[in-house]
Design a protein around this nucleic acid. Sequence first.
DNA 1: GTGCTTATTGTAACTTATTACAATAAAAAG
DNA 2: CTTTTTATTGTAATAAGTTACAATAAGCAC
Lengths: 143, 143
Amino acid sequence: MTCSATHVTEQIRARGFRLTQPRMAILNVLYEAGGHLTPTEIFEHLHPKLPHVSEPTIYRNLDFLRLNGFVRATPTGNGRLEYEIVGHPHHHLRCQDCGTEIEIEHSLLQPLYERLEQSTGYRLTETHHTFLGYCPRCKPKGE
Amino acid sequence: MTCSATHVTEQIRARGFRLTQPRMAILNVLYEAGGHLTPTEIFEHLHPKLPHVSEPTIYRNLDFLRLNGFVRATPTGNGRLEYEIVGHPHHHLRCQDCGTEIEIEHSLLQPLYERLEQSTGYRLTETHHTFLGYCPRCKPKGE
DNA sequence: GTGCTTATTGTAACTTATTACAATAAAAAG
DNA sequence: CTTTTTATTGTAATAAGTTACAATAAGCAC
């Protein structure tokens, strides 16, 4: 387990929640993957080693981890959610033709967030956005 | 049928597609609703009058209408999609506490889009984003 | 370690979304 | 109007996501 994974597990116990086998396993899969995974992908990663871990447990724990700020839910544009370990805040830019994705720092969106907060009175919580478009390679096709 | 609905149906035929009963009915429901609806909501609106129209037809037509630019799919943040008639490009700002939604003009995001395009080489297609946060009324609770 | 408390889990049932393919009906031609 | 073509549909089966509730096991006290 990585250093930051240990930090998360300590946090979970410190907040009075239980450190169960499925919960740790889900975190480990997300850490090992590095990027974002769908609930089904996580289930498939886990199933060989822990065949008793059920889908509802995956969904409930992902929601639990999200509400506690340990993972982020990223809407993929097709109306499904993927999950990833919370690191630095960022967003994605995905090519709708070939699927290539690049990360963009949240700092690029910060000015927009501030402008939106001023003009609407809302306080925005930083969440993940996926911007769709055509990557430089596929751009000619899209035109 | 409204003027712009007529425009859409003409466009569909002009592009060589067929103007079927389910397709028109789905468009009408979206026009009458004014805002965004889930596929299931559309199905429920339609079912009393057209009981033979099936769910797959709803999903396929929403996808068809989206690909042809007549409706917009809006990810709601919970991992589902809602659909609405394409009018002026806009986004939503939703309160994660009480659910209140307000619209913001896409023009507010245009500068960001241009900056992203310059720094990444991608060409962004205008899509809908839902920004989550707390509305002025619920802001105190979220703090 | 043993027992208690209750957060968390698995099972079962259900809702929502998607796919495959044969049947249908919209549009065009005769 | 009738026939032909094929985009579009409905049916049936499946995948993905959610809910309800009784069973389990994590953490705590003894």
